[in-house]
């Protein structure tokens, strides 16, 4: 049979493992459909918001700082805490390296620090 084209969504195993990791209690198996529904709505809104931010800055590409603004507006970043702290807490090392400027040899900083 031909592969059906469906809306891409996060893999079940991933969503459930992350959710139960944070929940720290037993999670009923039939929670997944509910979670998926929530995440669908969440992504829809997220993309809408980010698009609005980028348009506001007269850009067509969504940049890192747009998502940062969204994080702050959602109240996910507590006052006085830099986003880098959250990056360090939640993201695996290889992604951290890409997001947080690190001084490498020869006085070069990667990734390029904007400001």
């Amino acid at each position: 049979a031909a592969k059906q084209k469906e809306d891409p969504s996060l893999p079940k195993a991933y969503v459930m493992s992350v959710f139960s990791h944070f929940a720290k209690t037993k999670v009923s198996r039939d929670v997944y459909p509910v979670l998926q529904e929530i995440l669908d709505k969440y992504f829809e809104r997220l993309v809408d918001d980010l698009e609005a931010y980028a348009n506001h800055a007269k850009r067509k590409t969504i940049e890192k700082q747009d998502v940062e603004l969204l994080l702050r507006r959602q109240g996910l970043v507590p006052d006085g805490v830099p986003v880098n702290v959250l990056i360090e807490r939640y993201l695996p090392m290889e992604y951290r390296k890409l997001l947080i400027p690190v001084a490498t040899s020869g006085n070069k900083v990667f990734p390029k620090h904007r400001r």
């Binding site: 139960s20 990791h21 944070f22 590409t61 959602q74 996910l76 997001l99």
Partner: peptide
């Protein structure tokens, strides 16, 4: 909609924080 370099990783962070709160 286009995503700049590493912007998707920030979305990933956002997603994790959202799931954390939800959980």
């Amino acid at each position: 909609v286009r995503f700049g370099a590493n912007a998707d990783l920030m979305v990933h962070l956002n997603l994790l924080l959202f799931l954390h709160r939800l959980a």
